[in-house]
Structure formats: C-alpha cells, structure tokens
Amino acid sequence: MNSTHNDKNRSTENSSFGDNPWRAMGLIGSVGGTIGVCLGLGYWIGSKVEGSEGSGYGSIVGMAVGFVIAVIMTIILIRAFTGGKAK
C-alpha cells in the first residue's frame, strides 16, 4: 500500500506518541531539565541545611530526596505528554 494512503486514513485522536518527533524531543528535554534541576536543588538545599557541620551527609541526603522528586516529576511529565496514557 501507499504510505500517503495510510497517512490520510490515520485518526488524529488515536495517534501514538511516536508520530510527532517534536513532542518526543520536548519530552526528552523536559525530563533532562527536571532531573538536573531537582538534583541540583537537592544538593544545594542539603548543603545549606547541613551548615558548617561538615559531615557531608546533608548534600547526599538532599540529592537522594531530589532524585525521588525527579522520578515523581518525570512520571507526571510523561503522563502529561502522552495524555494520561502512560504504560
């Protein structure tokens, strides 16, 4: 069959996430930015909370909390980009 024939019959409401490369690139950029910001803020807040004690655990705990938040935000982003149909 002709590929243009398939494109004309494709329903926009049933289109998959992979049909639009710009949406995929937007998702990848959003996920990367979210992970970077969450880890950076977690490190910074953890080091500020730790203060001058100097044990080094505050920044590690902050990064761990930032990572957990990044995973949650990534799931939310994927669901938003896919219209709530994330598998």
Rank of each mutant, 00 (worst) to 15 (best):
G18K: 06
V61P: 01
G40V: 00
S47M: 12
L77I: 13
I45W: 11
E53L: 11
G83V: 02
S15I: 07
I60T: 05
I28G: 04
L77G: 04
G58F: 07
K87C: 02
G40T: 00
C38E: 07
G56R: 07
R23C: 14
A70F: 04
T34S: 15
M73F: 14
S52K: 10
V31I: 15
G51P: 05
M73A: 15
E50T: 09
T34A: 15
F81K: 03
A70N: 02
P21E: 07
G26L: 15
I76C: 00
Y57K: 08
A86H: 07
P21C: 09
G36S: 06
W22H: 15
I72H: 05
S15Y: 03
M1P: 09
D19G: 06
K85N: 09
G62M: 14
G83F: 03
G58A: 03
T4Y: 09
L27P: 02
H5V: 15
L41F: 08
V61W: 10
I78P: 04
G58Y: 06
V37E: 01
M63W: 00
M63N: 00
G40A: 10
V65H: 02
T4F: 03
A64V: 15
T4Q: 08
N6A: 13
T34C: 14
N14S: 12
I72K: 07
G54W: 09
N6T: 12
S11G: 13
N14C: 10
K85T: 08
A80T: 14
N2W: 11
G62R: 08
E13M: 07
N14W: 11
T4V: 12
M63V: 13
A86Y: 08
G84V: 00
Y57F: 07
G33R: 03
G32T: 12
G33M: 04
S15M: 09
G58E: 03
G36H: 02
D19C: 02
G36V: 01
H5K: 08
R79W: 03
I28Y: 13
G54Y: 04
V61N: 09
G29Y: 04
E53C: 08
G51M: 13
T34V: 15
